[in-house]
């Protein structure tokens, strides 16, 4: 009852010997994620915590351990190369947590990934979790609960807010994906919506967006035509001043495009229940599922 990651996931951690990479690799392992390899150039042959073999390259890690998903904690200057290294090694799903990657680097990554089988989540994202089965990323595991709501978001802590509201009200999650806050990224809202729509164990979705770009509008249009599952949404940034970058490099209203008002209108026009405030994301979905909204 999930998409993309589950009990069978074999994870490689790129940057496992760094402080963030090491800390979060341990947290993921404690949650039950099957971490089969780590990669740090120059540290091949070491063992991480006496359990996980470290390799110099993702290519070797893939050959030796059959890892099929990678998570990247490499610093920004080397992260784009890290993504392409995982893609080159044939890793099926690459999740890049790193924030602060120059956008021109991501432009080149995206162009080079065209036509490849690998999928990318992020960068600048909290990662992905299938509660009770597999946690890959920096989200706190305990706020989640296995269930049937799919959660998709551009923001980390706002996702935790939505997940916590769901869990507190007794609603579990099938999978939660943070797609990241950068202007050029891998998986879009729409890509994730399609996967959740095809997943028989996901019965509803919460879509969390923010100002900038038009990814939420594209997802809304597809949902209107193709999706029968209950969907609730929230868009952050209604009060953000135009032309200013609100923390996330992608969260900027430019030339009157990408406003919260425009996105909310598109979502509502697609029959999606839009939460008025971030405090009511779960309640808005629950009302919709119960046929009240």
């Amino acid at each position: 009852m999930s998409i993309l990651v589950d009990k069978n996931t074999r994870l490689v951690v790129q940057g496992i010997t760094g402080s963030a990479g090491g800390f979060h690799a341990r947290q993921c392992m404690e949650y039950g994620t099957n971490v089969v390899a780590g990669v740090t150039p120059g540290k091949g042959g070491q063992m991480f915590d006496g359990k996980v073999p470290v390799f110099d390259t993702v290519w070797e890690a893939r050959q030796e351990t059959g890892c099929n998903v990678s998570v990247i904690f490499v610093p920004a200057a080397g992260a784009a190369d890290g993504i392409l290294e995982a893609v080159d090694a044939g890793v099926e799903l690459v999740i890049c947590i790193t924030e602060g990657i120059p956008v021109i680097d991501m432009m080149r990554v995206k162009a080079q990934m065209a036509g490849k089988k690998s999928r990318l989540i992020g960068p600048n994202c909290p990662g992905i979790i299938t509660p009770g089965a597999c946690k890959i990323g920096i989200m706190p595991g305990y706020i989640h609960k296995p269930g049937k709501v799919g959660v998709i978001s551009r923001s980390g802590t706002l996702t935790y807010e939505a997940v916590w509201q769901l869990t507190s009200r007794g609603y579990g999650q099938s999978t939660c994906i943070g797609i990241g806050g950068d202007p050029i990224n891998g998986m879009s809202h729409l890509d994730a919506v399609k996967l959740f729509n095809d997943d028989p164990d996901t019965d509803s979705m919460i879509l969390i967006g923010e100002i900038g770009g038009s990814a939420e509008e594209e997802a809304a249009e597809w949902i209107k035509a193709n999706c029968k599952k209950a969907v609730a949404a929230f868009i952050a940034g209604a009060t953000a001043p135009p032309g200013r970058r609100m923390g996330h490099a992608g969260a900027i209203v430019s030339g009157g495009k990408g406003t919260a008002a425009g996105k909310i209108e598109a979502l509502k026009a697609a029959g999606i229940a839009v939460a008025e405030t971030p405090a009511t994301m779960a309640d808005t979905l629950i009302s919709r599922m119960e046929g009240k909204a």
Partner: peptide
């Protein structure tokens, strides 16, 4: 004062929703 850019924006939004006016956006990071 908020942790995370998305939550920081959403916090500004909800202040406005209840009739207040935010003085700033501040993300202290993770």
């Amino acid at each position: 004062l908020v942790n995370g850019a998305g939550l920081a924006m959403a916090t500004m939004d909800i202040i406005k929703f209840y009739g207040g006016s935010p003085a700033n956006f501040l993300d202290v990071g993770g």
